[in-house]
Computed example of a mutant assay.
Amino acid sequence: MYDFEEAKVKEFLKRTGAKRAALQVPAGLAPHLPEIMRPFDQLGVEVVIMAGSCYGACDLADEAAKKLGSDVLVHYGHADMGLESVLPTLFVEARIEKSPIESLELALPELRFKRVGLVATVQHVGHLEEAANFLELHGIQTFVGGPSTRTRYPGQVLGCDVGCAKAVAPMVEGFIYIGTGEFHPLGVALVTGKKVVAVNPVSVSFKIFMPQQDEFIKERKAMVARAALGKTFGVIVSTKKGQSRFNLASKIVDLLRREGKRTYLLAVDDISPEVMKNFGFDALVLVACPRIPVDDAERFESPVLTPFEVLVMLGKLPIEPYRMDEINKEDMG
Protein backbone atom coordinates (compact mmCIF):
# COMPACT_ATOMS: atom_id res chain seq x y z
CA MET A 1 0.00 0.00 0.00
CA TYR A 2 2.83 2.39 0.91
CA ASP A 3 6.09 2.99 -0.93
CA PHE A 4 8.82 2.96 1.72
CA GLU A 5 11.58 3.56 -0.88
CA GLU A 6 13.91 0.81 0.30
CA ALA A 7 16.52 1.50 -2.38
CA LYS A 8 16.64 5.19 -1.44
CA VAL A 9 17.00 4.33 2.25
CA LYS A 10 19.84 1.88 1.53
CA GLU A 11 21.67 4.44 -0.62
CA PHE A 12 21.36 7.03 2.16
CA LEU A 13 22.65 4.65 4.82
CA LYS A 14 25.61 3.59 2.67
CA ARG A 15 26.45 7.16 1.64
CA THR A 16 26.46 8.42 5.23
CA GLY A 17 28.22 5.32 6.62
CA ALA A 18 25.56 5.12 9.33
CA LYS A 19 26.05 2.62 12.14
CA ARG A 20 23.06 3.75 14.22
CA ALA A 21 19.93 5.27 12.67
CA ALA A 22 17.09 6.99 14.49
CA LEU A 23 13.64 6.44 12.99
CA GLN A 24 10.60 8.66 13.28
CA VAL A 25 7.38 6.91 12.31
CA PRO A 26 3.88 8.44 12.66
CA ALA A 27 1.22 6.41 14.43
CA GLY A 28 -0.52 5.45 11.20
CA LEU A 29 2.63 3.79 9.85
CA ALA A 30 3.68 2.05 13.08
CA PRO A 31 1.96 -1.23 12.12
CA HIS A 32 4.24 -1.37 9.07
CA LEU A 33 7.41 -1.35 11.16
CA PRO A 34 8.62 -4.81 10.02
CA GLU A 35 8.56 -3.61 6.39
CA ILE A 36 10.15 -0.26 7.30
CA MET A 37 12.96 -2.03 9.15
CA ARG A 38 13.95 -4.28 6.24
CA PRO A 39 16.72 -2.14 4.66
CA PHE A 40 18.25 -1.40 8.06
CA ASP A 41 18.32 -5.10 8.97
CA GLN A 42 19.79 -6.02 5.60
CA LEU A 43 22.66 -3.55 6.04
CA GLY A 44 23.21 -4.35 9.73
CA VAL A 45 22.44 -0.78 10.84
CA GLU A 46 21.34 -0.44 14.46
CA VAL A 47 17.96 1.28 14.81
CA VAL A 48 16.62 3.49 17.57
CA ILE A 49 12.91 4.19 17.18
CA MET A 50 11.99 7.64 18.42
CA ALA A 51 8.68 6.63 19.96
CA GLY A 52 7.48 10.13 20.79
CA SER A 53 5.24 12.20 18.57
CA CYS A 54 5.67 12.36 14.79
CA TYR A 55 2.98 14.82 13.72
CA GLY A 56 4.72 16.20 10.66
CA ALA A 57 7.99 17.42 9.20
CA CYS A 58 7.67 20.24 11.76
CA ASP A 59 8.18 17.63 14.49
CA LEU A 60 11.80 16.70 13.83
CA ALA A 61 13.55 14.62 16.52
CA ASP A 62 17.07 15.30 15.28
CA GLU A 63 18.47 16.78 18.50
CA ALA A 64 17.10 13.97 20.68
CA ALA A 65 18.40 11.41 18.18
CA LYS A 66 21.87 12.94 18.29
CA LYS A 67 21.89 12.75 22.10
CA LEU A 68 21.29 9.01 21.73
CA GLY A 69 24.37 8.66 19.53
CA SER A 70 22.55 8.27 16.25
CA ASP A 71 24.47 9.00 13.07
CA VAL A 72 21.40 9.78 10.95
CA LEU A 73 17.66 10.38 11.19
CA VAL A 74 15.11 8.79 8.85
CA HIS A 75 11.72 10.47 9.07
CA TYR A 76 8.72 8.65 7.57
CA GLY A 77 5.37 9.87 6.31
CA HIS A 78 6.05 13.56 5.63
CA ALA A 79 7.81 15.77 3.09
CA ASP A 80 10.84 17.88 3.96
CA MET A 81 9.80 21.47 4.76
CA GLY A 82 13.35 22.77 4.82
CA LEU A 83 14.07 22.87 8.54
CA GLU A 84 17.73 22.68 9.55
CA SER A 85 18.76 19.39 11.16
CA VAL A 86 21.78 18.61 13.34
CA LEU A 87 21.97 15.15 11.72
CA PRO A 88 21.93 13.96 8.11
CA THR A 89 18.18 13.45 7.62
CA LEU A 90 16.21 11.52 5.02
CA PHE A 91 12.47 12.03 4.51
CA VAL A 92 10.60 8.98 3.26
CA GLU A 93 7.19 10.26 2.22
CA ALA A 94 5.47 6.86 2.19
CA ARG A 95 3.39 7.60 -0.90
CA ILE A 96 0.17 5.61 -1.19
CA GLU A 97 0.18 3.62 -4.40
CA LYS A 98 -3.59 3.29 -4.77
CA SER A 99 -5.12 5.37 -7.56
CA PRO A 100 -7.89 7.88 -6.75
CA ILE A 101 -9.78 7.22 -9.99
CA GLU A 102 -12.32 4.81 -8.47
CA SER A 103 -13.21 7.39 -5.81
CA LEU A 104 -13.38 10.16 -8.41
CA GLU A 105 -15.79 8.10 -10.50
CA LEU A 106 -18.08 7.77 -7.46
CA ALA A 107 -17.92 11.52 -6.88
CA LEU A 108 -18.47 12.55 -10.52
CA PRO A 109 -22.22 13.30 -10.09
CA GLU A 110 -21.29 15.86 -7.40
CA LEU A 111 -18.55 17.52 -9.44
CA ARG A 112 -20.65 20.30 -10.88
CA PHE A 113 -17.53 22.31 -11.69
CA LYS A 114 -16.13 23.47 -14.99
CA ARG A 115 -12.93 24.68 -13.33
CA VAL A 116 -11.56 22.89 -10.27
CA GLY A 117 -8.49 23.17 -8.06
CA LEU A 118 -6.68 19.97 -7.09
CA VAL A 119 -5.05 19.51 -3.68
CA ALA A 120 -3.71 16.50 -1.78
CA THR A 121 -1.61 15.43 1.16
CA VAL A 122 1.89 14.27 0.35
CA GLN A 123 0.88 10.58 0.35
CA HIS A 124 -1.43 11.25 -2.61
CA VAL A 125 0.21 14.20 -4.36
CA GLY A 126 1.82 11.89 -6.91
CA HIS A 127 -1.63 11.08 -8.30
CA LEU A 128 -2.63 14.68 -9.07
CA GLU A 129 -1.62 14.44 -12.73
CA GLU A 130 -3.59 11.21 -13.11
CA ALA A 131 -6.61 12.86 -11.49
CA ALA A 132 -6.26 15.92 -13.74
CA ASN A 133 -6.20 13.76 -16.88
CA PHE A 134 -9.31 11.89 -15.73
CA LEU A 135 -11.22 15.07 -14.94
CA GLU A 136 -10.28 16.79 -18.18
CA LEU A 137 -11.62 13.79 -20.10
CA HIS A 138 -14.93 14.62 -18.42
CA GLY A 139 -14.81 18.27 -19.44
CA ILE A 140 -13.46 19.68 -16.17
CA GLN A 141 -10.50 22.07 -16.36
CA THR A 142 -8.01 21.60 -13.51
CA PHE A 143 -5.68 23.98 -11.68
CA VAL A 144 -2.86 23.10 -9.28
CA GLY A 145 -1.20 25.78 -7.16
CA GLY A 146 2.55 25.81 -6.67
CA PRO A 147 4.39 24.92 -3.45
CA SER A 148 3.87 27.32 -0.57
CA THR A 149 6.12 28.37 2.30
CA ARG A 150 6.00 25.04 4.14
CA THR A 151 5.22 22.61 1.32
CA ARG A 152 7.45 20.90 -1.20
CA TYR A 153 5.15 19.98 -4.07
CA PRO A 154 2.52 21.68 -6.25
CA GLY A 155 -0.93 20.92 -4.86
CA GLN A 156 0.36 19.75 -1.48
CA VAL A 157 -1.57 20.93 1.57
CA LEU A 158 -0.72 20.79 5.26
CA GLY A 159 -2.90 21.42 8.27
CA CYS A 160 -0.95 24.64 8.75
CA ASP A 161 -0.50 25.65 5.09
CA VAL A 162 -3.09 25.67 2.30
CA GLY A 163 -1.23 28.25 0.24
CA CYS A 164 -1.48 26.23 -2.99
CA ALA A 165 -5.29 26.31 -2.70
CA LYS A 166 -5.39 30.04 -2.02
CA ALA A 167 -3.19 30.65 -5.07
CA VAL A 168 -5.74 29.19 -7.51
CA ALA A 169 -8.97 29.97 -5.62
CA PRO A 170 -9.84 33.01 -7.81
CA MET A 171 -9.65 30.83 -10.94
CA VAL A 172 -11.82 27.89 -9.82
CA GLU A 173 -15.38 27.12 -8.81
CA GLY A 174 -14.41 24.51 -6.22
CA PHE A 175 -11.76 22.03 -5.12
CA ILE A 176 -11.10 18.32 -5.12
CA TYR A 177 -9.04 17.06 -2.20
CA ILE A 178 -7.36 13.68 -2.50
CA GLY A 179 -6.49 12.11 0.83
CA THR A 180 -7.81 10.86 4.14
CA GLY A 181 -9.20 12.74 7.13
CA GLU A 182 -11.38 15.84 7.36
CA PHE A 183 -9.13 18.57 8.75
CA HIS A 184 -7.42 19.41 5.45
CA PRO A 185 -10.53 19.69 3.24
CA LEU A 186 -12.33 21.62 5.98
CA GLY A 187 -9.44 24.07 6.04
CA VAL A 188 -9.44 24.48 2.27
CA ALA A 189 -13.21 25.15 2.26
CA LEU A 190 -13.03 27.74 5.05
CA VAL A 191 -9.92 29.52 3.77
CA THR A 192 -10.95 29.71 0.11
CA GLY A 193 -14.72 30.03 0.53
CA LYS A 194 -15.20 27.26 -2.04
CA LYS A 195 -16.92 23.87 -2.02
CA VAL A 196 -14.50 20.96 -1.55
CA VAL A 197 -15.17 17.39 -2.64
CA ALA A 198 -12.85 15.16 -0.61
CA VAL A 199 -12.14 11.82 -2.27
CA ASN A 200 -10.57 9.06 -0.20
CA PRO A 201 -8.73 6.46 -2.33
CA VAL A 202 -8.17 4.21 0.68
CA SER A 203 -11.84 3.78 1.65
CA VAL A 204 -13.06 4.44 -1.93
CA SER A 205 -15.47 7.13 -0.78
CA PHE A 206 -16.03 10.87 -0.90
CA LYS A 207 -17.42 13.64 1.31
CA ILE A 208 -18.49 17.21 0.56
CA PHE A 209 -17.31 20.22 2.58
CA MET A 210 -19.14 23.49 2.07
CA PRO A 211 -17.53 26.88 2.88
CA GLN A 212 -20.54 27.68 5.08
CA GLN A 213 -19.66 25.29 7.90
CA ASP A 214 -22.53 26.32 10.17
CA GLU A 215 -22.06 23.58 12.74
CA PHE A 216 -18.31 24.17 12.92
CA ILE A 217 -18.76 27.95 13.35
CA LYS A 218 -21.41 27.32 16.02
CA GLU A 219 -19.00 25.10 17.97
CA ARG A 220 -16.18 27.63 17.73
CA LYS A 221 -18.47 30.48 18.84
CA ALA A 222 -19.38 28.45 21.91
CA MET A 223 -15.69 27.83 22.62
CA VAL A 224 -14.93 31.56 22.38
CA ALA A 225 -17.87 32.41 24.65
CA ARG A 226 -16.66 29.96 27.32
CA ALA A 227 -13.14 31.36 27.16
CA ALA A 228 -14.38 34.96 27.47
CA LEU A 229 -15.63 34.17 30.98
CA GLY A 230 -12.15 33.14 32.09
CA LYS A 231 -9.72 35.15 34.18
CA THR A 232 -6.59 32.98 33.88
CA PHE A 233 -5.15 32.05 30.50
CA GLY A 234 -2.36 29.71 29.48
CA VAL A 235 -0.74 30.55 26.13
CA ILE A 236 0.94 27.38 24.92
CA VAL A 237 3.85 27.50 22.51
CA SER A 238 5.55 24.39 21.14
CA THR A 239 9.24 23.61 21.42
CA LYS A 240 9.01 21.51 18.26
CA LYS A 241 11.34 22.94 15.64
CA GLY A 242 8.71 23.72 13.03
CA GLN A 243 5.97 24.89 15.41
CA SER A 244 7.78 27.25 17.78
CA ARG A 245 5.87 30.49 17.17
CA PHE A 246 7.34 32.33 20.16
CA ASN A 247 6.98 35.74 18.52
CA LEU A 248 3.25 35.28 18.07
CA ALA A 249 2.84 33.72 21.52
CA SER A 250 4.53 36.70 23.17
CA LYS A 251 2.23 39.11 21.36
CA ILE A 252 -0.84 37.20 22.51
CA VAL A 253 0.39 37.14 26.12
CA ASP A 254 0.88 40.93 26.03
CA LEU A 255 -2.52 41.46 24.42
CA LEU A 256 -4.38 39.36 26.99
CA ARG A 257 -2.57 41.02 29.88
CA ARG A 258 -3.51 44.46 28.57
CA GLU A 259 -7.12 43.28 28.58
CA GLY A 260 -6.85 42.39 32.26
CA LYS A 261 -6.40 38.62 31.90
CA ARG A 262 -3.89 36.87 34.17
CA THR A 263 -1.82 35.18 31.49
CA TYR A 264 1.10 32.74 31.49
CA LEU A 265 3.35 31.57 28.67
CA LEU A 266 4.00 27.83 28.64
CA ALA A 267 6.51 25.99 26.44
CA VAL A 268 5.63 22.36 25.83
CA ASP A 269 6.95 19.66 23.50
CA ASP A 270 3.96 17.31 23.35
CA ILE A 271 0.76 19.11 24.34
CA SER A 272 -1.57 16.89 26.36
CA PRO A 273 -4.79 17.49 28.34
CA GLU A 274 -3.27 15.73 31.34
CA VAL A 275 -0.39 18.22 31.63
CA MET A 276 -2.62 21.27 31.07
CA LYS A 277 -5.11 20.04 33.68
CA ASN A 278 -2.45 20.44 36.37
CA PHE A 279 -2.38 24.22 35.94
CA GLY A 280 -6.12 24.79 36.24
CA PHE A 281 -6.31 27.61 33.68
CA ASP A 282 -9.75 28.95 32.81
CA ALA A 283 -8.83 28.94 29.12
CA LEU A 284 -5.99 27.95 26.81
CA VAL A 285 -4.59 29.49 23.63
CA LEU A 286 -2.74 27.08 21.34
CA VAL A 287 0.13 28.69 19.42
CA ALA A 288 1.41 25.36 18.17
CA CYS A 289 -0.06 22.86 15.71
CA PRO A 290 -3.29 24.38 14.31
CA ARG A 291 -4.95 20.97 14.30
CA ILE A 292 -5.14 20.67 18.12
CA PRO A 293 -7.77 23.35 18.88
CA VAL A 294 -10.02 22.03 16.11
CA ASP A 295 -9.61 18.25 16.31
CA ASP A 296 -8.72 17.71 19.97
CA ALA A 297 -10.51 20.51 21.84
CA GLU A 298 -13.01 18.13 23.46
CA ARG A 299 -10.14 16.32 25.21
CA PHE A 300 -9.30 19.43 27.25
CA GLU A 301 -11.31 20.51 30.30
CA SER A 302 -10.74 24.21 29.56
CA PRO A 303 -11.82 25.92 26.32
CA VAL A 304 -9.04 25.96 23.73
CA LEU A 305 -8.65 28.89 21.31
CA THR A 306 -6.61 29.60 18.21
CA PRO A 307 -4.73 32.93 17.89
CA PHE A 308 -7.48 34.22 15.56
CA GLU A 309 -10.17 33.32 18.12
CA VAL A 310 -8.40 35.38 20.78
CA LEU A 311 -8.99 38.45 18.61
CA VAL A 312 -12.63 37.41 18.18
CA MET A 313 -13.02 37.01 21.94
CA LEU A 314 -11.63 40.50 22.53
CA GLY A 315 -13.98 42.03 19.96
CA LYS A 316 -11.20 42.97 17.53
CA LEU A 317 -12.39 40.73 14.66
CA PRO A 318 -15.68 39.06 13.68
CA ILE A 319 -15.75 35.26 13.70
CA GLU A 320 -16.98 35.22 10.11
CA PRO A 321 -15.40 34.83 7.71
CA TYR A 322 -13.60 32.26 9.86
CA ARG A 323 -9.82 32.17 9.56
CA MET A 324 -8.00 28.88 9.93
CA ASP A 325 -4.71 29.11 11.79
CA GLU A 326 -1.75 28.93 9.41
CA ILE A 327 1.92 29.07 10.40
CA ASN A 328 3.91 31.99 8.96
CA LYS A 329 7.64 32.68 9.12
CA GLU A 330 7.16 36.03 10.86
CA ASP A 331 5.47 34.27 13.79
CA MET A 332 8.44 32.01 14.45
CA GLY A 333 11.41 32.64 16.70
Rank of each mutant, 00 (worst) to 15 (best):
G333I: 05
R291E: 10
V196C: 02
L111D: 01
L186K: 10
K316G: 04
D161V: 07
S103A: 15
G126S: 14
L284V: 02
F308G: 03
D62I: 02
A22W: 06
A132E: 06
M171V: 07
A283L: 08
V310I: 10
N278F: 08
R220G: 02
L190K: 00
D296P: 00
G155P: 02
P318D: 11
L266N: 08
D59E: 12
F175C: 07
F91E: 06
F12M: 06
M276Q: 05
K329H: 12
T232W: 12
I140L: 11
D296A: 13
A267L: 14
E6K: 12
P321W: 13
P307S: 12
L229I: 04
V224L: 09
A297C: 07
Q212G: 06
T180S: 15
R152N: 11
S302I: 04
P154N: 04
A131W: 01
V312A: 06
A64H: 07
N278L: 15
A30L: 15
R245K: 12
S272M: 12
T151P: 01
D254V: 09
P290H: 12
F143H: 14
P307D: 08
H32K: 13
I271C: 05
G77I: 07
E46H: 09
D270K: 11
S148C: 10
F4L: 09
K241E: 07
P293H: 08
E6I: 03
N247P: 00
C289V: 05
F308I: 03
V304Q: 06
L317V: 12
T151V: 07
V237P: 03
K10Q: 14
I208Y: 04
F300D: 07
G155W: 03
Q156E: 15
L68A: 14
G187D: 07
K67V: 11
G139K: 08
T16G: 10
N133Y: 04
Y2I: 10
F300L: 09
V157P: 03
D59A: 08
D295H: 04
R262N: 12
P290T: 12
Q42W: 02
L73N: 04
L83P: 02
E259Q: 13
G260W: 00
V197I: 15
